[in-house]
């Protein structure tokens, strides 16, 4: 008996026959397959819209490994400048290159100052505009604030007055 396009059994034996037929039909595999283009185009469009919304053209800085940046409620846009990083393990990096151990650098800052001066002189060679005196400072949130402030003092004496502290915006 057929009801609304599907088979319906009137008694137990007919039910058994219908079930057997269905089971046989499940065993047959389709040779080819069709790609559901409508769903794929839908998914692509949604992905494109989402990614376009999250797209940002502002400059980005690399966060060094071993640094957990603190969160901030009032962040500004990051500016393109050299990046100085103070890691949790106590190492100091300038543009991802190891300068030395922070404690030693704070006692004897000549190594860092030489590298900062090189950046300044390279800038003067390639640009006609005055040096912007900006630097990005990354530090782990567990690092002591006195260590960060001592490094800031060194940067100020090296004529890097505008210090951008890297944070994670909420």
């Amino acid at each position: 008996m057929r009801l609304n396009g599907s088979l319906v059994a009137s008694d137990a034996f007919e039910k058994h026959l219908i079930n057997r037929r269905r089971k046989r039909a499940w065993g047959v595999k389709a040779i080819g397959f069709t790609l559901m283009l409508t769903s794929m185009v839908d998914m692509f469009s949604m992905l494109v819209v989402f990614l376009l919304q999250t797209f940002s053209s502002s400059p980005e800085i690399l966060v060094s490994k071993g640094i957990e940046l603190p969160n901030s409620l009032t962040p500004d846009i990051v500016k393109e400048a050299p990046v100085l990083s103070i890691n949790r393990d106590g190492n100091l990096y300038l543009d991802q290159k190891l300068v030395g151990i922070t404690k030693q650098i704070t006692k004897k800052p000549s190594l860092l100052m030489n590298k900062l001066n090189t950046i300044k002189s390279d800038w003067a060679k390639s640009h006609s505009t005055p040096f912007p005196a900006e630097i990005n400072l990354q530090a782990d949130k567990e690092v002591s604030s006195t260590t960060v402030s001592t490094v800031m003092g060194m940067l100020t004496s090296g004529q890097y007055q505008s210090i951008q502290l890297a944070v994670i915006g909420r």
């Binding site: 185009v41 692509f44 469009s45 992905l47 494109v48 990614l51 376009l52 999250t54 797209f55 940002s56 980005e60 800085i61 966060v63 940046l69 901030s72 009032t74 962040p75 500004d76 846009i77 990051v78 500016k79 990005n136 800031m152 003092g153 940067l155 100020t156 007055q161 505008s162 210090i163 951008q164 502290l165 890297a166 944070v167 994670i168 915006g169």
Partner: peptide, 26 residues
């Protein structure tokens, strides 16, 4: 076109929102 755009946007996507707090020491 859609696949090219998806690839480009996925490569250039920034997932961590890094900001800065300016300090003027002078």
């Amino acid at each position: 076109l859609l696949s090219t755009m998806v690839c480009f946007l996925l490569i250039t996507a920034v997932w961590i929102d890094i900001g800065s707090v300016e300090i003027k020491q002078s």
